[in-house]
């Protein structure tokens, strides 16, 4: 006991009370975590080891679900590949576009506040409303996009009904929500001391080099954060694809998350869906870990001088 000798020894009851009080204060979070996060996590893993129809008898089958997935289910691989393609389009575009928008907003031109709000607005619109808007834009017969394209003499494709363009259309619609990462970049840009750019100007560093050698390294923590969150949201992409194309045409936008969703709630095979969820979790985990490890090479943290520097 590290209590000061002057204080009287607390009674047993008091001591126990003091032990419980802090726990009571954090209990809402702990209960939430136990029931809504850890519980389902463990439960879903147990599920994944069973043949578990929503209605009917469950049967323990060990790793059979995982084996089926890897060996006997071509749709698993197709869906995974579609998701990887989507991530390959979405993640770089999301980062580059939100970075460029942030740079533009940071120029402090007239009307910056209006544009900032406008760019962020889609992020607060509900997914269903957003998808409805995009389905009008993409519509083959009276869609806004093809109507505009007709002015420049382009006969636009059937965006949502074409096997090549479907995934592109979904990527573009997803990019509409880049307001969040844009704001993160904007906050980052505004925290870079302007003297760094002035010093660069005086030493004759051209503007493109200022962006590459000053802005990007100073923003690297935000880039890392956006990279990881974009990867996660790309792999979990469901709403837009489900509502816009429902996996079509010819399953060309049948995302991995959609496959999980349909397995669970249309085919009622909870065990198999749970197993696929765990595979997705592992993929995201491994990707994130790889990115984190790679980031040591290019992320600069303001607050921390890295250990290898200190040793040098």
């Amino acid at each position: 006991m590290a209590t000061a000798p002057a204080t009287p020894r607390p009674s047993r009851r008091k001591a126990r009370g003091a032990g419980i009080t802090p726990w009571l204060f954090i209990s809402p979070w702990i209960l939430g975590f136990l029931f809504f996060t850890l519980g389902p996590l463990v439960f879903s893993f147990v599920m994944s080891l069973h043949d578990w129809p929503i209605v009917g008898t469950r049967e323990f089958i060990g790793l059979e679900n995982y084996r089926t997935m890897l060996q006997d289910d071509p749709q698993f691989w197709k869906s995974l590949w579609i998701t990887v393609k989507f991530a390959g389009l979405f993640v770089p575009l999301n980062i580059v576009l939100s970075f460029l928008l942030a740079v533009l907003l940071n120029l402090n031109l007239r009307g910056t506040a209006i544009y900032r709000t406008a760019f962020y607005l889609p992020s607060v619109i509900s997914g269903v409303a957003l998808v409805t808007i995009w389905s009008w834009i993409y519509s083959n017969e009276y869609g806004l996009l093809n109507y505009l394209l007709s002015f420049v003499g382009i006969d636009g494709p059937n965006w949502l009904g074409d096997r090549t363009w479907g995934i592109v259309a979904i990527t573009v619609a997803s990019l509409w929500g880049l307001g969040g990462s844009m704001l993160i970049f904007l906050a980052g840009l505004q925290s870079i001391p302007k003297e760094l750019y002035e010093a660069a100007r005086v030493s004759g560093v051209p503007p493109w080099a200022q962006i590459i050698y000053i802005t990007l390294p100073m923003l690297s923590p935000m880039i890392l954060f956006t990279l990881i969150t974009s990867i996660i949201s790309a792999f979990q992409q469901l709403t837009i694809a489900l509502l816009l194309t429902d996996g079509g045409p010819v399953n060309s936008t049948y995302f991995f998350a959609m496959y999980i969703y349909k397995t669970a709630f249309r085919f009622h095979d909870m065990g198999y869906a749970a197993a696929m969820s765990w595979v997705m979790f592992l993929i995201i985990l491994i990707l994130s870990m790889l990115v984190m490890r790679w980031s040591a090479a290019w992320v600069y943290y303001e607050g921390q001088a890295r250990k290898d520097d200190a040793d040098a």
Partner: peptide, 13 residues
Amino acid sequence: IAMVFQNYALYPH
């Protein structure tokens, strides 16, 4: 010219 700034303006990275 060359300029020295009040807060040094060194590139931290």
